[in-house]
Design a protein around this nucleic acid. Structure first.
Length: 198
DNA sequence: GGAACGATTGAT
DNA sequence: TCAATCGTTCCT
């Protein structure tokens, strides 16, 4: 995916990221997942980290489109975003869930789940932004890394683009402000989303 | 310097 | 439904 793909409105990118492949390489191995749930955040949105301007913690969000913005929350979880829009616009797409495709052993190991746990291959492995980051070994060291110019994280175009009628929109999860915006996008009926859409 | 608060998760 | 857990932000 080139930089022009990311240099568009967060809502557009959030929808087009559905069914794209998220790939994480490391010395431990490679893990791949199919993105099935995203959320859009813009600077004029009171629920967005960028709403109150650029700070040391969120400055990646104001950088080049195609950068990875990783934040730490609730004292124990990381969440990964893709920066979108023109540089400085302060918008991003939160990647909330993927279908685990490759490197399941490594994901289970990183998540602290036993190998035999068949149940873990459902939404509990990568369904949710914190779980996804843990399974993919993503932390604050990845904040500011570039998806476009090479690095441990990459996103590849899906073979099957999700048509608009197959995208379900809903309220975003876990936000206390901007609750009425329909800026959460999931592949309709997908089994691997963080929860069933309302 | 201190307090309040999370774009969450897992256990009860 | 609720505790865990700590960096960031904002107020004094």
């Amino acid at each position: 995916m080139n930089r022009e793909f990311y240099a568009r409105d967060a809502e557009i990118v959030a929808k087009e990221l559905l069914n794209c492949l998220l790939v994480r390489t490391s010395e431990e191995g490679t893990v791949v997942g199919r993105i099935c749930e995203t959320e859009a955040y813009t600077q004029d949105d009171c629920a967005s980290h960028s709403f109150r301007g650029c700070t040391p913690a969120n400055h990646t969000m104001f950088g080049e489109p195609g950068l990875v913005y990783v934040y730490f929350t609730y004292g124990m979880h990381y969440c990964a975003n893709v920066v979108t829009g023109i540089p400085g616009s302060g918008e991003a797409v939160l990647i909330r869930a993927v279908e685990p495709l490759e490197g399941l052993e490594l994901m289970l190991l990183r998540r602290g789940l036993s190998h035999g746990t068949r149940l873990a291959i459902g939404r509990t492995l990568c369904g949710g932004p914190g779980r996804l980051c843990q399974a993919f070994g993503i932390d604050r060291n990845h904040d500011g890394t570039d998806l476009v110019s090479g690095g441990p994280l990459k996103i590849y175009q899906s073979t099957s683009i999700v048509c608009d009628s197959d995208i379900a929109k809903s309220r975003r999860i876990g936000v206390s402000k901007g609750v009425d915006f329909l800026r959460r996008f999931v592949v309709a009926g997908d089994r691997y989303t963080s929860r069933v859409e309302k």
